[in-house]
């Protein structure tokens, strides 16, 4: 499944790098501790977090994540957006909290597999 389908199904707001919505999503990772995400997430994951500072872009880029979804209508900082555009990492925003958003994405990915 690609990001575009998830964006459409869940009504996510795309903040940057919309040219990369064809990225394939292989699974998901939910977490707010950068060291944890760095250590345990995988390539192609969609990363669900409430962290908004620019370090998230470095993590997503190093781990080759498909994209980042910010929960709870969190706004990325200017630095974060600039860096994500440069690194071509799509950042999306959902008004849901981590549990529900994760649940919905999990169900979507299960259905298509």
């Amino acid at each position: 499944m690609n990001l575009e389908t998830i964006v459409k199904e869940l009504g996510l707001e795309v903040k940057c790098a919309s040219e990369n919505l064809k990225n394939d999503v292989t699974g998901g990772y939910t977490g707010d501790l950068l060291s944890d995400v760095m250590a345990n997430s995988h390539e192609g994951n969609i990363w669900i977090t409430r962290q908004v500072h620019q370090n998230i872009v470095a993590v997503a880029s190093l781990k080759d994540h498909a994209g980042i979804i910010l929960i709870n209508s969190c706004e990325p900082t200017q630095d974060t957006l600039a860096k994500a555009s440069q690194e071509k990492i799509p950042i999306m925003v959902s008004n849901l909290h981590a549990f529900e958003l994760t649940g919905k994405i999990y169900n979507l990915l299960e259905k298509k597999d």
């Binding site: 549990f99 999990y106 169900n107």
Partner: peptide, 16 residues
Amino acid sequence: ILFETAGRLYAKGMVG
């Protein structure tokens, strides 16, 4: 992982 944990519980009807 948290993603799988939340996903499994949500699929079984637990709500946020």
